[in-house]
């Protein structure tokens, strides 16, 4: 079943040097799957995620044929109705929990707020639900965490709290923008396992934005590879290592491999023509 369909998405920013095009005509669809979007910084992957939630503010310009969610074009939805889409239909987990949690508000109050905004229930019910959600993301002492402030949490805990908060309104789609980049490898694994479990149990669609190719190859079902605002290649995640596009190959080869030592790493040689080829369609 198709959850989301994006057609010909453009994101532009006016600058002194003229219009900068961050995303240039990207089309893809999302079903109940884990879709990875990879690319370097500046390739437009985060902007794609933000554009779906209409989080790009003027002077930024978002244009698309359509961004369809349940037969509704999100570009035509009023700002008031959009607030209901955010959180309830589509949630987003950002890169750094330090910047996405309110530093002067107790964690419990923040999670409860996320639930109360979308559900008219009593406070005690929201509280019970929040504790339950914290347990679902493997936080050992949820009562203590409810009372704590964000600075008392480690990065891994903070990110799990963010995931709990984003999943509590039970959205259909989760957009995770580099959710584990600020975390250690060992913690990374835990956070991914939790996300994976929740996505599977609830039958959600996941857009996983990352610069880490190996992580995406392992964790996602399908991958879109972005370069200079366009999708240059799309493939099944487990076949990422057989990718055809020289950009994808270049990125893979530039990684140091622990089992294959060499003196020099391969450096990515960019071909200006990569940016000129029209975007590949990322539909299933």
């Amino acid at each position: 079943m198709m959850l989301l369909d994006v057609k010909d998405l453009w994101v532009k920013f006016p600058t002194r040097q003229g219009l900068f095009e961050a995303v240039r005509g990207v089309s893809f669809s999302l079903g109940k799957e884990r879709l990875g979007i990879v690319g370097e910084s500046g390739s437009g992957k985060s902007m794609t995620g933000r554009a779906i939630l209409r989080l790009i503010r003027p002077p930024g310009i978002v244009e698309a044929d359509h961004i369809t969610l349940e037969g509704r074009n999100l570009l035509d939805v009023t700002e008031k109705d959009m607030r209901e889409v955010r959180g309830e239909k589509i949630s987003m987990v950002m890169q750094d929990p330090k910047f996405s949690l309110n530093p002067v508000m107790r964690i419990g109050d923040q999670i409860m707020e996320a639930y109360l905004v979308h559900n008219s229930v009593s406070k005690s019910e929201a509280r019970a639900k929040s504790v339950e959600m914290l347990e679902a993301v493997s936080i050992r002492d949820p009562e203590r965490v409810m009372r704590a402030y964000p600075h008392e949490m480690s990065g891994g805990m903070g990110q799990r709290i963010m995931i709990a908060m984003m999943l509590i309104p039970n959205p259909q789609i989760l957009i995770a923008d580099e959710p584990t980049s600020a975390l250690d490898v060992t913690v990374q694994r835990q956070v991914l396992d939790i996300m994976d479990k929740l996505v599977k149990e609830r039958g959600m669609g996941l857009i996983f934005i990352s610069h880490d190719l190996n992580l995406v190859a392992e964790f996602c079902d399908r991958v879109l590879i972005m370069y200079a605002g366009r999708i240059v290649e799309t493939c099944d995640a487990n076949k990422l290592h057989d990718a055809k596009h020289p950009y994808t190959q270049g990125l893979l080869n530039s990684l140091p491999r622990f089992d294959q030592p060499r003196r020099h790493l391969d450096v990515l040689k960019r071909d200006p023509s990569w940016a000129e080829v029209p975007s590949v369609k990322g539909h299933t």
Partner: peptide, 14 residues
């Protein structure tokens, strides 16, 4: 840094 830039910096350090 991005992986492609990381490769350049590591080569430089080597």
């Amino acid at each position: 840094l991005d992986v492609s830039v990381q490769a350049e910096i590591l080569n430089l350090l080597t």
